[in-house]
C-alpha cells in the first residue's frame, strides 16, 4: 500500500511538471502578449520593454519555465496580471468557496449515485424507464441545468436565491472559510441555513452529471455482482436481502464506480467554472473565468496546477481504496 502511494506521488510530480510545460508552450503560442495586457494599450514600447524585463518575460522560454517551477515549489505562483496580487493569495481567498461547493456537490453526487445505482440495479419493472430518464438528464449540459434551475426555483417558485454564497451582511470570516461549517462553529445557525439555501442549486447542478455517470456504472457492476456465484452462496446461507446487498453486493461492485468517480472529478471542475459564473459564486471557477479573457497567465497556470494536483490526489486515493476493498488487487 505504501509502495503504491509512493509510486503515485512520483507520478503526480511528473504530471504537474508536464502540465507546466504544456501551459508554457500554449502561452507562447497564443497571440496575446501578457505584458501588453498588463500595461494597457496606451503604454509606450519602452515602457512595455521595461515591464517585460522586470517580470522576466524577456528571458528564453525554458528559463521562464524553470523560474516558474522553482518558484511554485516554494509556494510562489507569481503575481496576477489582473489583480496585481500574488496568485497564491488570490487562490487562498477564492478557494474556500469552491471547496465548499465541490464538497457539497460530491456529497450530493455520492448519495444520488448510490440511490440511482441500487434503484436501477436488478431487473424490477421500473428500472428501464428510470434509466431512460436518467440518460436524458445526463445528456443536458450544465449551463442548461443552471438556467433551468434559476428559472424554476428562483423566478417561478421563489424558493431559492439566484446568486451568491450568502445574503447575510457580516458572515464569520473563519476559521475554515466554509460558511456552513463556520456558522456552526461560531454558534450562528442562521449563517449555516442561509449558506445551505445558496448552496443547493449550484451544488445539484454540478452533482447531476457525475452522479448519473457513477450511478450507471454502479448499476451495471451491481447487476453483474448480484448474479454471481457467491451471492447465490449468501442467499443459500439464508441472509437477508439487505445483508446481501450491503455486505456482499456493494463491496464487490465498488471498484468500477470508484474509478468512474475519480475520473468524473474532471467534469466536476469543468462544471464548477460554468456554475460559479452563472451563480456569481465567489470561487476559483469565477476567478479563472475572469482571468482567461485578460490572458492573466500566472492566474490561469496557478489555478490549473492546483486542480491537477487535486485530480491526481483524488485518483490516487481511489486506487488505494480499491486495493483496500478488493484484497486481490493489493497483491
Amino acid at each position: 500500500m505504501l509502495a503504491l502511494a509512493g509510486r503515485r506521488l512520483a507520478g503526480a510530480v511528473a504530471i504537474c511538471l508536464g502540465l507546466t510545460v504544456v501551459l508554457f508552450v500554449l502561452q507562447h503560442l497564443s497571440a496575446t502578449d501578457p505584458v501588453r495586457v498588463l500595461v494597457g494599450p496606451s503604454a509606450s514600447t519602452a515602457q512595455v520593454d521595461a515591464v517585460r524585463h522586470q517580470l522576466g518575460y524577456d528571458l528564453p522560454l525554458y528559463a521562464q519555465w524553470w523560474h516558474y517551477v522553482t518558484g511554485a515549489a516554494t509556494g510562489d505562483l507569481q503575481t496576477s496580471l489582473r489583480t496585481h496580487r500574488p496568485v497564491a493569495t488570490d487562490i487562498a481567498q477564492f478557494l474556500p468557496a469552491s471547496i465548499e461547493l465541490a464538497l457539497f456537490s460530491c456529497l450530493i453526487a455520492a448519495v444520488l449515485a448510490l440511490v440511482l445505482g441500487i434503484g436501477t440495479a436488478g431487473r424490477w419493472r421500473g428500472a428501464a424507464p428510470l434509466n431512460t430518464v436518467l440518460l436524458a438528464i445526463a445528456s443536458a449540459p450544465a449551463f442548461l441545468l443552471t438556467l433551468l434551475g434559476i428559472m424554476v426555483f428562483y423566478r417561478n417558485l421563489g424558493w431559492l436565491p439566484p446568486t451568491g454564497r450568502t445574503s447575510i451582511a457580516d458572515p464569520p470570516g473563519g476559521p475554515t472559510g466554509l460558511l456552513t461549517v463556520d456558522g456552526l462553529l461560531t454558534g450562528r445557525p442562521d449563517v449555516t441555513l442561509d449558506a445551505l439555501r445558496h448552496l443547493v442549486m449550484p451544488a445539484v447542478c454540478v452533482a447531476l452529471l457525475p452522479a448519473i455517470a457513477v450511478g450507471r456504472t454502479l448499476r451495471s457492476s451491481l447487476t453483474t455482482a448480484l448474479e454471481s456465484d457467491h451471492i447465490r452462496t449468501a442467499k443459500a446461507k439464508g441472509l437477508s436481502r439487505r445483508a446481501i446487498l450491503l455486505h456482499h453486493g456493494l463491496r464487490n461492485s465498488a471498484t468500477t464506480p470508484l474509478s468512474m468517480a475519480g475520473l468524473q472529478l474532471g467534469s466536476v471542475f469543468a462544471s464548477l467554472v460554468v456554475v460559479e459564473t452563472v451563480f456569481a459564486w465567489p470561487g476559483l471557477g469565477l476567478y479563472i473565468s475572469q482571468s482567461i479573457p485578460t490572458s492573466d497567465f500566472p492566474a490561469i497556470a496557478g489555478t490549473t496546477l492546483l486542480l491537477a494536483v487535486a485530480y491526481v490526489a483524488v485518483n490516487t486515493a481511489v486506487d488505494i481504496t480499491q486495493a483496500v476493498l478488493d484484497p486481490r488487487l493489493a497483491r
Partner: peptide, 13 residues
C-alpha cells in the same frame, strides 16, 4: 455446497 469454491466464496470478505 457448490461446484466452484473460488467463485462461490465472496472474494472481498
Amino acid at each position: 455446497v457448490f461446484q466452484d469454491p473460488m467463485s462461490s466464496l465472496d472474494p472481498t470478505m
